[in-house]
């Protein structure tokens, strides 16, 4: 059974004057344990697709099956519950909370699971060790380099042992050396069994993935090519 399956997934944004179709009948399937890159030019709908796959938003039409369950009509409360259980996120601009220390940032996904403090501490320590960031546990994000911040973000993404990690341009704000480091981390996680879906502009980063999905104007690139051919 696929971990992720979308069927004719569409997303339209409407204002008083303008209607924008960000996604147009997208069909994708991603199996458990895959490392998939989603590529395409700016405005092609990559982030919209990632929003929906990451249960941050609902489609306007079509279906989204996550682990065989149709989650396309879920309420925010239901989506939040699933996010806690199944998903981890890595963002381009790290998105660490400046008022929390490294350890506290990593602990954040566990805070809302009802887990006891002692067990949370244990998991956080394990995640920090895995990402080699334990020596900075009490530091704050503004005291870290870009690479270190992204390692913290990755640690936060894996601390609740998610089935799926969604990464949005994870190396976009890093130099090549640190970027390479982060991609190696993601590859390591994938080899350990975590499914990774990554949005990227970088062909080099896409090279780490086993499969690439191309989007263009809200549709799969093959669908666009086929349409144009017609």
């Amino acid at each position: 059974m696929s971990l992720i399956q979308t069927i004719a997934l569409s997303k339209t944004y409407r204002t008083d004057e303008v209607e924008t179709t960000a996604l147009d009948a997208v069909d994708i399937t991603i199996g458990a344990g895959e490392f998939v890159a989603i590529m395409g030019p700016s405005g092609c709908g990559k982030s919209t697709l990632l929003n929906i796959l990451g249960l941050l938003d609902n489609p306007t039409s079509g279906q989204y099956l996550l682990n065989g369950t149709d989650v396309s009509g879920h309420t925010e409360r239901q989506r939040a519950g699933l996010r806690k259980q199944l998903l981890g996120f890595v963002f381009q601009s790290f998105n660490l909370i400046d008022e929390l220390s490294v350890a506290e940032n990593i602990e954040l996904p566990l805070v809302y699971t009802g887990m006891k403090a002692a067990e949370r501490r244990e998991r956080v320590n394990a995640a920090m060790e895995r990402m080699h960031i334990g020596h900075r546990a009490k530091h704050f994000p503004q005291q870290l380099s870009g690479g270190q911040q992204q390692r913290v973000a990755v640690a936060r993404a894996v601390v609740n042992e998610p089935a799926l990690i969604l990464a949005d341009e994870p190396t976009g704000n890093l130099d090549s050396a640190h970027g390479e480091e982060v991609m190696q981390l993601l590859t390591g996680l994938n080899e350990a069994g975590t499914t990774i879906v990554m949005v990227t502009h970088s062909l080099r980063d896409a090279g780490f993935a086993k499969r690439t999905i191309q989007l263009l104007d809200g549709r799969l690139a093959e669908a666009v090519a086929a349409t144009e051919l017609l």
Partner: peptide, 16 residues
């Protein structure tokens, strides 16, 4: 805003 969004991503409910 970023903090709120992150907490929601992490599974926080509105009332929390």
């Amino acid at each position: 805003a970023k903090e709120v969004a992150l907490r929601k991503v992490a599974g926080a409910r509105k009332e929390q």
